[in-house]
Amino acid sequence: MDNQKLTATQLTILHYLYRFRFLTSLQLQKLLSHKNIRLTNYHLQLLTSKNYLGKHYTRSLGLANLPAVYFLTSASIQALEDQDGIDKRALKRIYREKIRSQQFISHTSFLAEYYLFLRNESEKSKHNLHFFTKTDLLAHPYILHPLPDAYFARVDLAGITKRYFVEIVEDSSPRFALRKRVQEYCDYIDDGKFEEATSHPFPAILFICPGIGSLIYLKKHLARIYEETSIDQIDIYLATREGAFSGSWEKVEAEDE
């Protein structure tokens, strides 16, 4: 199977994995809008057999087998390097994908699940969704570095656009790292780079926390510094991972006197 013989569906699979890094077969089925998982698996098996893809899978005694998680391998580089929208800096990391940590894989897989949720919700509400992963954002040098996990914009039927940065917090994130990330956003707001480059107002920030403990800490920290920093100029919302899907967002406001 050389590059010329890759089907449109197979190239689309490579593109999704380029953007999201790690995806399960079930996520790819949804992304491709396949009615039957067997069709998705057919393409995945062909791509894996020709070393375009690698996969991790978990089999645990007493537990149902989890869906395989797929990632790009070295043969995919040649297939992708001349495609539109591909950043060659991102292709170099493909050599290291097979040794990524389980936390990293879970992190990227969660982002894909959140994207699927947003896509479904946008279709139901007739919003246009524009979603950029961290890989997509490499092409936009005015975006905050280190890059957010995602940036997306939703346009409603009246043409009103709402924009968001997404930050996924990990259980292992130390508190000083959370404070540092908040400060990076404060500095980014102050320099006005986003507004200058896009002519759009600064996006709201969505912090998605692993549990209620990190959410409470982050909310208290943000409230404490709210009126002393630039974050009082923007909207910031917090939710647990479960809350992000149920719409249980908490807006950050100044600390009560």
Rank of each mutant, 00 (worst) to 15 (best):
P67N: 01
L80S: 01
Q45P: 01
I13C: 06
I205L: 01
D136T: 07
H200E: 14
K30N: 04
R21W: 09
L147K: 12
I143D: 02
A79T: 02
K180E: 08
E250H: 12
N65Q: 13
T229Y: 05
T161F: 06
D82S: 14
M1A: 08
Y114L: 14
S122M: 10
A244L: 00
E170V: 02
Y237W: 11
F207V: 02
S74D: 11
Y188G: 02
H56Q: 09
Q233W: 09
G243F: 01
T73K: 03
D87V: 14
Y185V: 00
F71V: 06
L26G: 07
Y237M: 12
R163N: 12
P141C: 13
I77T: 05
A68S: 15
S101C: 05
I208H: 01
S60M: 13
H200S: 11
F132S: 08
L61P: 00
Y217L: 07
L111M: 12
N51Y: 11
P201R: 10
P148M: 05
V155D: 04
L53Y: 07
S33Q: 10
R96Q: 12
I77L: 06
E121G: 04
I143M: 14
E121W: 01
Y217A: 09
I94N: 02
H140W: 06
T58C: 08
L31T: 08
R59H: 11
D235K: 14
L66E: 07
E253V: 15
P67Y: 01
R38I: 14
K124W: 07
H200Y: 14
L26A: 10
Q83F: 06
V155F: 04
L178W: 04
Q27P: 09
A8H: 08
L61D: 06
S248M: 12
F110V: 01
T240Y: 03
N128A: 14
L26F: 03
L206N: 07
Y237S: 11
E170P: 00
Q78Y: 09
L91T: 02
L47W: 07
L28I: 13
I234A: 02
I13Q: 05
G62H: 02
R100W: 08
L222M: 15
H15M: 13
R96P: 03
L11P: 00
K219N: 14
G192S: 09
F194S: 03
H15C: 10
N128I: 15
P146T: 07
A139W: 08
L14A: 04
D82V: 11
I77S: 03
Y217V: 06
P201Y: 09
M1Q: 03
Q233S: 13
E255Y: 11
L26W: 03
S109I: 07
L111N: 05
I37G: 05
K162F: 12
L91G: 04
L44S: 03
A158K: 15
Y52N: 04
K162E: 14
S248D: 14
